[in-house]
Write a protein that binds this DNA or RNA. Sequence first.
DNA 1: GTAAGTACGCACATAAAGGTAAGTACCCAT
DNA 2: ATGGGTACTTACCTTTATGTGCGTACTTAC
Lengths: 139, 139
Amino acid sequence: MHNDNGSDSPQVAEASSTLSAKMRRGDLFAEKCPSRDVLKHVTSRWGVLILVALLGGTHRFSDLRRKTVGVSERMLAQTLKWLEGDGFVARKAYPVVPPHVEYSLTPLGREVGLKVQALADWIEGNLPQIMAAQPAPEK
Amino acid sequence: MHNDNGSDSPQVAEASSTLSAKMRRGDLFAEKCPSRDVLKHVTSRWGVLILVALLGGTHRFSDLRRKTVGVSERMLAQTLKWLEGDGFVARKAYPVVPPHVEYSLTPLGREVGLKVQALADWIEGNLPQIMAAQPAPEK
DNA sequence: GTAAGTACGCACATAAAGGTAAGTACCCAT
DNA sequence: ATGGGTACTTACCTTTATGTGCGTACTTAC
């Protein structure tokens, strides 16, 4: 996908020069910016559900699996890894014999979780209006 | 995908009985709820960009195409249709000879747009912290 | 008159996301 | 000792999303 990013235009702001105060965030329209990936993780099919579920407290892997109806183990593990990698989810594994792992939100995770939930809530709340706008629900 | 939705559990709340006050919104954990699709459209790869772009005012098709660097005509048209179908974008076509179409946000669209932008902004603003959390940026 | 721009639609192809099934290592209840 | 639960991983396959390129109908610019 030929992203002719010709000159080395900064995607995320030089992380060690003028950082602190201004911190230019080159996202949205900059394809290579890592924040795009973060957004992807957070708004992924199961990411939203997991974040919201965890807003309700610590959960074990299988608890999440049961609560998030329809998710496969593969995707649950994958999504949790993404969120963990982004620093939103904290994983605590107990070295007991039948595996026991607990997942919870980090302070940062709680923040995004709330934002995501806010968006989801807005959509839910305005669904009737949205549906009313168009009789033919384009798939 | 055997969604054993056994009994007819409401996905979106009966839109004409206990509506007004309570309005049960059966989203998030209800796979069949249309709000899932809306979320998908809104958080899609180009949906976010388009909404943000339109927050800046009315745009023509090719204006959007140029502004949203990297989008293909196909996807731009597709995403605009989704958003139009959801009642977020208003399409106005002038019956002139070289096609002239203008896209803008509806009041509803402006609201979601702001929510989406809020999430995106949060992520952008906290990217340094997010990146700092994990040295290995899981793809 | 030849090229380019406009706003798409259509068909084909690939990439990415997601699902399915099975395996692992070990424990507890029956 | 057989089955089920726990927390995953890996290999394989399907679905969905997105990209590429071409065609249109007509006009203005060169």
